[in-house]
Simulated scan of single mutants.
Amino acid sequence: MEKKMTSGEMAKKAGVSQKAIRLYDEKGLLKPTEYSEGNYRLYDAAALQILEKIVALKQIGFSLEEIRDNLKSGEASDIKSALEIQLQKMEEKKYQLEKITDAIKRTLARKDDLDWDDVAGIVQYVNADQSADERHWDALKHTSGELDWYVRIFRSLEIKEGSRVLDLGCGYAKLWRNNWTEIPKGTKITGYDIHGSWADDFAKFIPENKETLPEDVSIELEFEDLEDEKTWQKIDATGEYDVVVAHYLDSEIKDIEAIVAHASSVVSEDGYFSLNGANVAKWNKYFKEAIEAVGVDASFIDEKIAKQTEKRNQYIAMMEKYFARVESVILPNVWHYTEAGEIVEKMKDYYKDQEKAIVRYEDKLLSYFKDKIEKDGEFALETGSQFWHCYKK
């Protein structure tokens, strides 16, 4: 007959306290094999193996709730799966910690007289950066094989040698980083952004990589608030620019029309202003087809299209107030999906106000997309992003 162990003996063998074993019992992770006549907990060798798994999983960061779920589902017996699951979660935590650490450093470097508004600012920067990064990595994942997005944007600008370029809200500056050695000779680039943004990182990147720039290319950064009139007085004093860029500012600037108006005053007669936003997305077309195919009312998508169309028309009218000619530039892209679940998650994210409704018929949508993927090998969405090139004549 197998000799049973007391909780004290178990604790000693596993290197934990008796209090921990009692806690694991209370949480439903480790139940005694039996009880002695004096009502003491007793455990067998199998229980010791479970305890060792608990200790190991806890040591590498699993919560007690996660350990309990793993034990119940049997996942903890699959060491490779357990480690892969935890690695993914720890990578996510590491990513978040890096963002917070970086935001705090930027805030501390910017000023000595701090208040609680600065703490709120840190949260804002972290959320904005994380949201941008998530969109970027999502795009990289599903557009692999396509030409780099910022290379496409760069080429669409057709910058000529010796041009003066003003980049409003340059941020991390992928437009320049991803085309570093392709910038035309003699180009003079001036970027504007605020401290506490990813432009701080670009400020370090420039001197570290200056030697690899093409002949006579210069890039300078100015840390000023574009919503401050004094900033525009400073920009006006620098003369005219051949190309003025204001990309991905729509959600960051309170008054985008003020940016358009100011930009019109510093663009040269033969130059142009490049702005993006107010896209009527092709996502709507694909998602409407899917929703109608599973027999669900897709009128909310028609409403979204109507709102996007109205915003686009307002954008055009706004730009035509300050420029004689406004040209639409559509940059095409193809998103490739091989997992039906990822497409449905994209739908939930795109129609956030309809997420609960989408969940109700999620199974039907998953089946629809699985059939498409099985038939064609993937689900490809041909999309396009709207850019506007504005000219004075």
Results as ranks from 00 to 15, higher is better:
K3A: 13
K4M: 14
E9R: 13
K19M: 09
D25F: 06
D25K: 10
L29M: 15
L30K: 01
K31E: 14
P32F: 08
S36M: 08
G38Y: 10
N39H: 09
N39A: 11
R41T: 03
Y43M: 10
D44C: 10
A46L: 08
A47Q: 09
L48N: 07
K53Q: 12
V55P: 02
K58R: 15
K58C: 05
E66M: 10
R68D: 02
D69F: 02
L71S: 06
K72H: 11
G74V: 12
A76N: 05
S77W: 14
S77A: 14
I79A: 12
S81Y: 13
L83P: 03
Q86I: 02
K89P: 01
K93E: 15
K93Q: 15
E98N: 12
I104R: 04
R106H: 07
R106Q: 14
L108S: 07
A109T: 07
D118H: 08
V119P: 02
Q124I: 01
Y125I: 05
N127Q: 14
D133Q: 14
E134H: 09
W137E: 13
W137T: 11
W137Q: 13
D138W: 15
T143H: 04
E146G: 13
V151D: 04
F154C: 07
S156Q: 10
L157T: 06
K160R: 12
G162Y: 04
L166C: 06
D167M: 06
D167W: 05
L175R: 05
R177Y: 06
N178G: 00
N179M: 11
T181K: 15
T181E: 15
E182W: 06
E182F: 09
K185A: 15
G191E: 01
Y192W: 06
D193F: 07
S197C: 12
A199W: 02
D201I: 05
N209T: 07
T212M: 11
P214W: 04
E215Y: 02
S218W: 00
I219D: 01
E220S: 11
L221P: 03
L221Y: 03
E222L: 11
E222M: 11
E222D: 11
E224D: 03
E224F: 01
L226C: 03
D228V: 01
Q233G: 15
Q233H: 07
I235N: 00
A237K: 09
T238D: 15
V243W: 00
V243E: 00
H247L: 13
D250Y: 12
K254T: 13
V260G: 02
A261G: 00
H262S: 03
S265R: 15
Y272G: 00
S274M: 11
A278K: 02
K282C: 05
W283D: 06
A290G: 08
A293F: 08
G295F: 10
V296Q: 14
S299L: 01
S299G: 03
F300A: 02
D302S: 12
K307T: 06
K307V: 04
K311S: 12
A317C: 07
F323R: 01
V326L: 09
E327Q: 13
S328C: 05
S328V: 11
S328N: 09
S328F: 05
E345Q: 15
K348R: 14
D349G: 05
D353I: 04
D353N: 13
Q354I: 01
K356Y: 04
I358C: 02
V359K: 11
D363L: 05
S367W: 02
Y368I: 08
F369K: 04
K370E: 15
I373T: 07
D376A: 15
A380F: 00
Y391D: 03
K393S: 11
